[in-house]
Design a protein around this nucleic acid. Sequence first.
DNA 1: ACAACGTACAACCAGTCGGTTGTATATTTG
DNA 2: CAAATATACAACCGACTGGTTGTACGTTGT
Lengths: 113, 113
Amino acid sequence: MTEESADRADALFHALADRTRRDILRRVLAGEHSVSALAAKYDMSFAAVQKHVAVLEKAGLLTKRRSGREQLASGDVEAVRSVASMLTELEQVWRGRIARIDVLIASDPDQEE
Amino acid sequence: MTEESADRADALFHALADRTRRDILRRVLAGEHSVSALAAKYDMSFAAVQKHVAVLEKAGLLTKRRSGREQLASGDVEAVRSVASMLTELEQVWRGRIARIDVLIASDPDQEE
DNA sequence: ACAACGTACAACCAGTCGGTTGTATATTTG
DNA sequence: CAAATATACAACCGACTGGTTGTACGTTGT
């Protein structure tokens, strides 16, 4: 469980660690786009864009739906939220540190002000 | 501006895309740790851990403070929040899509139902 | 039927990543 | 001063990344 959730986190952050993929994700969160429609937006080969889409799909950030000969990609906002929740969890760890410091200060009267 | 903020986003997500680095970040968000204290926690060389710390530092997720011969690393919660805000911004893009769909349905009376 | 379109995937390449070992430089301690 | 400790960094290595081109296959439109 912990092992595969780490795998998933690795895949999610890795997928987001490329500006082209973040831009693709932005577009498909705004609405469905075919792979070739996406490819037309970037100064690189169709195959390169198709691989970026595949990375986003494997990470679960995007799903595809067949429509005739086109593959329509759509962003998955739940996956985006799951990444955000990992970060707020980290933030909670930090809050714990602050709480501990506060306790220390409160229990130790000869502290500054 | 846009170019360097993309660089920063690349660095942040890349730094987070490794489970060892996420674990280090968790520890240094909870409290200060020297590099060697961190290295002792992992089954890899000191140099490997030192490089992970350097990646987190370059991304701005962690800062170091000298204390004698030790370097004490501390997590920067503001950097974590900045990543979270990038994700909520993506979520806003998605909300825009939903809002547009709602408008379409409202303005088109001959819809299902 | 056939030409054009949309997609997927394999093979390849230069560059980067995550790890190693080894060496150099401060700092503390005896 | 000398020994031990804490850190930084260079060089190296196998694996992976992000890009390319080429090929194959299903779907559309004439």
